[in-house]
Design a protein around this nucleic acid. Structure first.
Length: 752
DNA sequence: CGCTCGGCCTAA
DNA sequence: TTAGTTAGGCCGAGCG
């Protein structure tokens, strides 16, 4: 479940990112509009419930344990009987992992000892939960077959490798008898480089369990001998593929896709009492890996099952100034909401509190006199609600571990919830050009001198992946256009964005030094092409858009970085600049080989170019009458290693310059701020930003810290004027702690 | 004072 | 066990 793995919330930088335990000493929020809405909601809820004969109160008297009978609506929908012989089982898979377990009778694969079993958790259209055990899939990798290797050698190779791996084991807790399940010969080509479209013999080596892949690879690479073949090193291929991923690729399963188990092709585990089932799911089934059907996420298979999402947040009674510790500080409140995927409102809002608590609008409250009962009861609540997804702000790093540790400290029995806690390119070497007798028109040389064969000779793997991604995005965009349901629209928009990001990231991982598919030639060639294209664009634009060609001004490329160029076209209005910019982009594109093209993106007016990777400007994209925003790149205003005083000052000065067109006003403002600083009229919190400062302030805890910090800041500050450049104004502050150097400099020539 | 280096953060 | 990249600006520290 990806949602659970991630840290929630915005990045705030540094160690203080970790969620703080909250103190319950003060209530700072005043009644808000949100609360009024909740009150309204509550009234409606009351009315609805009284019709069903529900209790009207929302605060449950102290001491009551949560009971599943409290509200039957909270339970997952009843699961109708399932007949594997006549019923097809279809569910959306939301989590996938594997474990080592005993083979199940009637399922394929090894029978003896522990075998790897893939486990999928999912939800049906009717909201019933499914745990599906998938049998018979084993991990494998490849090595090139040595010269002279024939089928008759397979058995000997397998036997030798098997005993080598067995001998290599330090202990054999699982009593593994067989390590190498199979070896067969297949025709394959290495993805790296072009080999003249001639697949070679590779040995596909299937192991009994995933953790045997690494030792087998190591033994083969170190030098392996069998039969009459000399000791040699075998290079392993695809030995670094995670078992889950291997399974997903081979069975066409992708994240959160829909899975179909055809009738008659799976078994239902029924006897709960005999311990057959291992999960709390309503249906627990076994299936052979080659019998499950995975549906590509297109059309109706893009829908989302009615997943149950629990979000929660805990409050601890911390000691003053100390981060709460589960061994000491009690959990005093757990607020939980549960919502079904696709519904607008949560159908459960529950607050579990220690001691009494005022009524909270919109929520039901359970009060406890003992913390132990609170935790026990909440665990029971979660089991009843049976969420598919558990989420919350940083719960993975704070709330969940805290609850588990606290429950252990208090010796709460049955707290341990059954959380799923989730336990190329052508695929050329220069020396090969002669060998494979490639004609010059068969390959191209990139700006970095690397050679790639053209797709007419052999289409690479990466172009294939990219084409698939881009065409899938095209389809998603087309569906988005005709879709009217706003919710489905969101899903489709997310899908097309994800596909775009995936396509862009293809380049990224070829540059990774340690990764699944490193290829420096590709990443360097990509950047090389980028540089070349910028250069070409500059030549083209500056040669065509000139006064002598009848244009208003000589165009000038003012700035460019990696994949973009800023052109000063010299026309009077933003609208004219947009028109000319679009025309120029199309014209330049016509000089590039498709699908490469130059796109018009935006107009900056005015544009303050401070340095490479540092500029600001008013950003116009669609409407020439109004700028969308003041865009700042790389400047103090967007950097987090400056105190707010600096960012605010620079921001105001930029507004003066760009929006008000008043550079003198900017200087005046900067002088005023410096003067305020000198006269100690600046709020110290404007200077507090660095981690060190924040920490120091916490240590002092209280006003005393502010006084001390203020004294030190004023004591250490100094100002300097630059005599050489009247437009450069500089003041440095507190060199010891806060990086608070103010700098404001511009040159009229830099303003476009 | 000027230079280089490492640390940090951003652009793309 | 776990991992996208390079280019580049600015600051502070250390050195001669």
């Amino acid at each position: 479940m990806e949602f659970k793995k991630r840290n929630g919330g915005p990045a705030m930088g540094g160690a203080s990112q970790a969620k703080k335990g909250k103190m319950n000493t003060e209530w700072e929020d005043s009644p808000s509009q949100f609360e009024e809405e909740l009150a309204l909601f509550d009234e409606m809820e009351m009315e609805a419930e009284s019709g069903e004969g529900q209790a009207g109160h929302d605060v449950i008297p102290e001491g009551d344990l949560f009971s599943a009978d409290l509200n039957p609506r909270w339970k997952r929908p009843h699961a109708p009987p399932l007949q594997p012989i006549s019923d097809t089982l279809i569910f959306q898979q939301i989590d996938l992992d594997y474990y080592l377990g005993s083979a199940v009778a009637g399922m394929p694969g090894q029978v003896q000892g522990k075998v790897p079993i893939v486990r999928m958790f999912g939800v049906t259209d009717s909201g019933n939960s499914v745990c599906c055990h998938v049998h018979g899939f084993a991990p494998y990798f490849y090595v090139p077959a040595p010269n002279g290797f024939i089928n008759a050698h397979l058995a000997e190779f397998q036997r030798e490798l098997n005993s080598a791996v067995l001998k290599d084991m330090r202990s054999n807790k699982d009593n593994i008898a067989v390590t190498v399940l199979a070896v067969d010969i297949t025709k394959k080509e290495s993805m790296y480089h072009y080999h003249g479209n001639k697949p070679l013999d590779f040995l596909r080596i299937t192991m009994a369990m995933p953790r045997l892949i690494a030792p087998a690879k190591r033994l083969l690479e170190q030098g392996f001998k069998f039969a009459n073949f000399a000791t040699q090193s075998y290079q392993a291929y695809e030995a670094n593929i995670d078992f889950e991923i291997r399974f997903m690729v081979d069975s066409d399963v992708v994240g959160c896709c829909w899975i179909e188990l055809p009738k008659g092709k799976y078994r239902l585990r029924e006897e709960r009492s005999e311990g057959q089932t291992v999960s709390l799911c309503q249906y627990e089934v076994d299936v052979a890996w080659n019998h499950l059907v995975s549906h590509p996420a297109e059309e109706e298979w893009q829908r989302i099952a009615p997943l149950r999402v629990l979000s929660f947040d805990i409050e601890c009674a911390g000691r003053k100034g100390v981060f709460p510790e589960p061994e000491i500080d009690p959990v005093i409140q757990i607020a939980s909401m549960v919502q079904r995927q696709g519904e607008k409102e949560p159908f459960i809002r529950m607050v579990f509190t220690l001691q009494s608590c005022a009524s909270i609008v919109g929520s039901q409250i359970l009060c406890f006199t003992q913390e132990k009962l609170l935790l026990q009861s909440w665990a029971e609540f979660v089991r009843t609600v049976d969420p598919d997804i558990i989420t919350g702000y940083n719960i993975q790093n704070f709330d969940l571990p805290y609850l588990l540790n606290r429950a252990a400290t208090l010796k709460v029995t049955c707290f341990l919830l059954r959380f799923i806690y989730f336990d190329l390119f052508v695929c050329v070497c220069k020396s090969q050009v002669d060998k494979l007798s490639l004609a010059p028109e068969d390959f191209i040389k990139t700006p970095t001198g690397d050679l790639f064969v053209k797709s007419s000779v052999r289409k690479g793997l990466l172009p294939e992946i990219l084409e698939n991604l881009l065409s899938a995005r095209k389809r998603a965009k087309a569906e988005l256009k005709k879709e009217t349901d706003p919710f489905k629209k969101q899903v489709l928009d997310g899908r097309q964005l994800a596909l775009k990001i995936s396509a862009n990231s293809v380049y990224g991982f070829t540059g990774a030094q340690v990764g699944k598919l490193p290829c420096l030639e590709i990443s360097q060639s990509v950047t090389g092409f980028g540089r070349q294209m910028i250069e070409q664009t500059k030549q083209l634009v500056e040669s065509r858009y000139t006064i002598s060609n009848g244009y208003q001004a000589d165009a000038k490329v003012v700035y460019g970085d990696t994949d973009s160029v800023m052109v000063k076209l010299g026309v009077a209005t933003v609208q004219e600049t947009m028109n000319l910019g679009k025309e120029a982009a199309d014209w330049v594109s016509s000089h590039f080989v498709p699908p490469i093209k130059l796109e018009f993106e935006k107009v900056y007016y005015p544009y303050l170019l401070i340095n490479k990777k540092r500029y600001a400007g008013l950003y116009f994209s669609s409407n020439a009458e109004h700028h969308d925003k003041m865009d700042c790149k790389g400047i103090e205003t967007v950097r987090r290693d400056n105190c707010p005083l600096v960012a605010n000052l620079i921001n105001t000065c930029l507004q003066n310059i760009l929006i008000d067109r008043d550079p003198d006003g900017a200087v005046a403002h900067a002088k005023e701020v410096i003067s305020d600083l000198l006269c100690n009229r600046i709020d110290i919190s404007q200077l507090v930003i660095t981690k060190e400062l924040t920490r120091t302030a916490q240590e002092y805890a209280g006003k005393q810290a502010h006084v001390e910090l203020a004294e030190r800041c004023v004591f250490t500050h100094s100002t300097t004027w630059s005599s050489s450049c009247p437009n450069l104004y500089c003041a440095s502050l507190n060199p010891y702690w806060a990086r608070a150097k103010l700098r404001l400099a511009w040159n009229e020539n830099d303003l476009y």
